[in-house]
Design a protein around this nucleic acid. Structure first.
Length: 326
DNA sequence: ACGCAGGGCGATA
DNA sequence: TATCGCCCTGCG
C-alpha cells in the first residue's frame, strides 16, 4: 500500500529546513538514510510498519514537504500526517521562537544560522532511550553504528523493493540478549560448532561498558517503569523517573525528555553546551553542567530545548566552537 | 604508538 | 554536596 501526500508551508508556523533538521546531529535517534534527495526510515504508525520517504526541495525553506508512506497494510493518512508533523517539529512555531531569540542579544545571532531548523523528534521512544544511553561519553559515529548493529542483530527485517530495514527490538527482547562473548558462549555451550563466531552479543555492537546498562534498563522498562505515560507527567517527575535507569544521568535524561517525549523546557547540557553557556552568559568563567542546566531552564523556560539546539548549531557554524576548544 | 575525548557511576571526604 | 578515577573505543 502506498500513501502519498504533501505538507504545505501554510500548515505550520515558520520555515522548514528538512535536511538541516535531520542532519544537525541531535542525540535521540540515528540519522535517517539519505538517497536521491530523500530521507528514508522505517516508522511504526498505529502498529503498522511504514517505510517513510520525506523530501523537500533544497534552497527553499517554504517548499512543501513531500511524504510517501509504504506499508503492507493500509495505514490512516491522518495518522501518518500527524506522526510526520511531530517528528519534524512542525507543531512548533518558529516565527514565535525567532521573536523570542531576537530579544536576547546573545541569541539573536543564532537566527541566521538556524533558519528552518527544528527539533527532530524520535519516532520510537524506547530506541531513543537506548540511543541516548549509548551516546553518553561516545562519538555520534560510534553510537549510530551501535544502534544500527543492534537493529540488524535483533530487529525484525522488512524488505521494501531492494531495500532492507530493521525495527528496533522491544525491551522484552533486548533484556534477554547476551551481554558479551562469554555469556553468548555459555548459552550456546551444547550446540556450539567448532568455528562459531561470537557476534550476537551487545558488546560486539560497540557499546562498550554501556552493555550492562542497556540490558538492565530494558529489564526495568519491561518490568517496573512505565514509559508510556511519561509524557503525561510533570517535567520534574519524568526527569526523576528516567534517572532511575542505569546509564541515564542528567544530560541523557534531558535528551530523552526533549527528543523522545517533547518536553521543550529540557536543557540538555553536554561539555559543549556548558562551554557555550559559560562563554555567552558568564564572560568565559567556567560553569559546571548542573549549574548550566539550571541556568538554562530558568532563563529560557519553554524555549530551553530550542535554545540549546540553536546555540550548538550556531557555535559550530560561526567558529565559536573552535575558539572554545583550547 | 598512545593519549585523549565523551557522560555516568561509585567511592571518597 | 562536590570531586575524582574509572569504564570503552575511535580518532589524531
Amino acid at each position: 500500500m502506498k500513501t502519498q501526500f504533501v505538507i504545505d508551508s501554510d500548515e505550520y508556523k515558520g520555515q522548514l529546513n528538512l535536511a538541516l533538521t535531520i542532519k544537525s546531529g541531535q542525540t535521540s535517534q540515528p540519522a535517517w538514510l539519505q538517497r536521491n534527495g530523500c530521507f528514508i526510515e522505517l516508522v511504526e504508525i498505529d502498529g503498522i510498519h511504514c517505510l517513510i520517504k520525506a523530501k523537500q526541495k533544497i534552497n527553499d525553506l517554504y517548499a512543501p514537504l513531500e511524504i510517501i508512506a509504504e506499508s503492507e497494510e493500509k495505514v490512516d493518512e491522518e495518522s501518518v500526517r500527524s506522526c510526520i508533523m511531530n517528528i519534524f517539529g512542525l507543531y512548533d512555531d518558529l516565527d514565535e521562537l525567532n521573536n523570542y531569540l531576537n530579544k536576547d542579544p546573545k541569541l539573536a545571532p543564532t537566527i541566521d544560522f538556524c533558519r528552518g531548523l527544528r527539533l527532530f523528534k524520535a519516532h520510537n521512544t524506547f530506541e531513543c532511550i537506548i540511543s541516548s544511553i549509548s551516546s553518553a561519553n561516545c562519538s555520534i559515529i560510534r553510537w549510530n553504528k551501535a544502534i544500527k548493529d543492534i537493529k540488524k542483530k535483533w530487529g525484525n527485517k522488512y524488505n521494501f523493493g531492494s531495500d532492507t530495514f530493521y525495527t528496533f527490538p522491544s525491551p522484552a527482547y533486548l533484556q534477554k540478549v547476551p551481554e558479551h562473548e562469554l555469556e553468548e558462549m555459555q548459552r550456546l555451550e551444547d550446540t556450539l560448532p567448532k568455528d562459531y563466531v561470537f557476534e550476537k552479543n551487545l558488546k560486539s555492537c560497540g557499546v562498550g561498558y554501556r552493555a550492562k546498562f542497556i540490558i538492565k534498563t530494558s529489564e526495568m522498562i519491561q518490568n517496573n517503569i512505565n514509559i508510556k505515560k511519561l509524557d503525561k507527567e510533570s517535567y520534574k517527575k519524568a526527569f526523576d523517573t528516567l534517572l532511575e535507569l542505569p546509564g541515564v544521568g542528567p544530560k541523557v535524561a534531558d535528551c530523552i525528555l526533549l527528543y523522545g517525549f517533547g518536553f521543550k523546557m529540557a536543557f540538555p547540557v553536554d561539555v559543549w553546551i556548558g562551554r557555550i553557556v559559560s562563554e555567552l552568559y558568564f564572560n568565559g568563567k567556567e560553569i559546571k553542567p548542573p549549574k548550566a542546566r539550571l541556568f538554562g531552564m530558568q532563563k529560557f523556560g519553554d524555549y530551553a530545548g530550542y535554545v540549546q539546539l540553536y546555540m550548538f548549531h550556531y557555535a559550530r557554524k560561526s567558529g565559536l566552537l573552535e575558539t572554545l576548544k583550547k
